[in-house]
Each structure stands twice: as C-alpha cells, then as structure tokens.
Amino acid sequence: MSEMSKIVRSISNLLLPFILIYGFYIILHGHLTPGGGFQGGAVVASGLVMVLVAYGSERFASWVKEKHLSVLESIGALGFISLAFLGLSTAFFYNFLAGKGGLFGDIPPEGSNPGALNTAGTLPLMNLAVGLKVIAGLASIVLVMGLASHYFKQGGENDT
C-alpha cells in the first residue's frame, strides 16, 4: 500500500501518542477499570495500523520488522503460560502472588473503593503478557498483508 497525502500523515503523527497512551493505560489498569490485555492491545494495534495505512507498508516495515513482532508475540504467549504454570503447586492458573505482600500483593478494602495499582497478584502481569501478544499479533497480521498487497499489485509471479 502506497503512501498517503501529507495531511493524513500529519494527523496520524498528531494522534499516535494519544492512542498509545490510552491503550497502555487500559492494559496497565486492567484490574481496576474496564478493559484488560485484549482490549488495550487492540487499541494500541489500531494506532500502529493507522500509521501503517498513512505511511505505506514499506516505510512501516523499515521501522518495525515483522521478525521482531513475531518474537514479541512469542514472549507474550510464553509469559502468560509460564505465569499460569507457576501457580501449579496449588492449581493451574492459581493466583500465587495475591495477598502475600510485596509486588502486586496487597488486598483492597471490601466494597467500592478507588483501588490501588499494587493489588491483584498475577493479574497485571498476565494483562501485560496478553497485551503484548495482541499488539504484536494484530500488527503483524496487517503488516504482512500490506507487504503482500504491494507484491500482488505489481502483478509479479517470480516465486523464490
């Protein structure tokens, strides 16, 4: 997909930081406010896809390599599964950090309260892992399809 006009590129430059901050806010506050790993990851990936559509897939591929996105996605998946396995002494997906103090170990007071970030055990880490996985997965899907669309548009048939 080729580059769009200067107006579209400027507006996407202007909007990208706000979309990224909103998406990472949704990921990191997943245990306090509505949202979580999948939702925030979808928001961040839509920001990256906006940049991809505005600048064209070739220039975007020179900034973000598809190989690195695959590595990030595998890191997210492995982190999620290994966090699930770490609680295996009691049960699979057991929340082994909750209520122990330390990092993410506090218990919030009963009932409605504004909440603290330092609660909920393994939930923020799992949110982060799933968010990383969704960001890398959706961005790499659109990136690979964009590169292939450039190829098909040229009408080339030269297989490797």
């Binding site: 949704i26 509505p34 949202g35 999948f38 939702q39 925030g40 979808a42 928001v43 990936a45 839509s46 896809v49 906006m50 991809l52 559509v53 959706l138 659109v142």
Partner: peptide
Amino acid sequence: IAEAGVGACITTA
C-alpha cells in the same frame, strides 16, 4: 472497547 478497536479500525484496514 474491544469492538471499537478491532471492528472499527483493524477490520477496516
């Protein structure tokens, strides 16, 4: 939030 992110942006792209 999931519908707005996936349905309105990524599917369109």
